[in-house]
Design a protein around this nucleic acid. Structure first.
Lengths: 133, 133
DNA sequence: TTATTATTGCAACAAAGTCGCATTAATTAA
DNA sequence: TTAATTAATGCGACTTTGTTGCAATAATAA
C-alpha cells in the first residue's frame, strides 16, 4: 500500500497547516477550497494517522478531532499522546496543551489509550471579553 | 417541574447501582429487565444529571457515559468533575479514578469542562491474563 | 502506452442522540 | 374516591457522525 500524492490529500494537509487548530471532520470540510466527499476526508485523515503525521482524539462533543503532529512535543511513533486538548468555546480553536500529564492508575492497571479534553475560554478570547465589559 | 417516581426511573437507577460501572446508553439498555424506549432512557439519565445524582462524560468511543455520583469523592453541586474515567477493554467496566487531576493551563485560559478518559486493562483482568499464559 | 492498484465518489448503512406530539400515569386538589 | 393537572413515556422522525462496498478514476510502475 504505497501512498499516492493526490490533490485532495494536499488540500486537507494545507488546511490543517493553515488553520493551526485541531479539526473535526465538519470544521475541515467547511474550510476546504475544493469540495470532496465526507468519506474521502475521513479516509485521508485516517491515513495520515496511520502514517503518524496526524493524531486523532475525541472531543467532549463526541466528535473525532485530527491534529498535525507538530507542536505536540517530540513524540516518537509508538508514543502515547498523554497531553490534553483544549477547545475554546468562543473562537472554536482546538489546541494541544504542551505538558504531558501523568495520571496515577491503581496498581495493576495498564493504559492503552489516553484522551484528555478540556473546554473553556482561551487567553485571547478571555481578554477580549474583559475588554467588552 | 417536580419529579415523579416511576418504575422506569427506579429500574434505571437499580441497574446503575447493581452494575457498579458507568454505563453508556446501550450498555444500560441491554441490562434493563424492563424494556423501555431509547429516548426515555436518555431523558431519565439526563434528569439524574440535572439532579446531581449522576454525572455524564464522553468516552474515547465518542459515546456518553453516565455514572452514579458516589465513590467520586465529595463533590458538591457546582464542582468540576476533574477526575479521569477508566474503561477496561477486557471486562468493559468503566470506573471513576479517585485522584483529582490538575492540568496547568496557559496563562489566561479558563476551564469550563473537563473530560479525562483512559482505556486499558484493569487489575482484575490483567492478572487473569497473566494466569492464562 | 499499458497495467496495476491506490484513491475517490456515491450510495447505503448503523449507531448515537434529540425532539415533537399524542398518550399514559403520578400527584394534587376537590 | 374522583377529577384535574402535568410530568413521564412511547413512537416516529430526524440530524449528525462515522464506516463500508463497489464501481469509476487516476497516480505510479512497467
Amino acid at each position: 500500500m504505497k501512498r499516492r500524492s493526490t490533490a485532495s490529500k494536499e488540500e486537507v494537509l494545507a488546511v490543517l497547516k493553515a488553520e493551526e487548530t485541531a479539526m473535526s471532520h465538519d470544521m475541515l470540510q467547511s474550510k476546504l477550497s475544493v469540495s470532496m466527499d465526507r468519506a474521502t476526508i475521513y479516509r485521508i485523515l485516517n491515513r495520515f494517522c496511520e502514517d503518524g503525521q496526524v493524531h486523532k482524539f475525541v472531543g467532549d462533543d463526541g466528535k473525532q478531532y485530527f491534529a498535525l503532529c507538530i507542536n505536540c512535543g517530540d513524540e516518537t511513533e509508538h508514543h502515547h499522546h498523554n497531553h490534553f486538548h483544549f477547545k475554546c468555546l468562543e473562537c472554536g480553536k482546538v489546541e494541544c496543551l504542551r505538558d504531558e500529564v501523568e495520571v496515577s492508575l491503581p496498581k495493576g492497571y495498564v493504559t492503552r489509550s489516553f484522551n484528555g479534553f478540556i473546554s473553556g475560554v482561551c487567553a485571547g478570547c478571555s481578554s477580549l471579553k474583559k475588554g467588552e465589559e
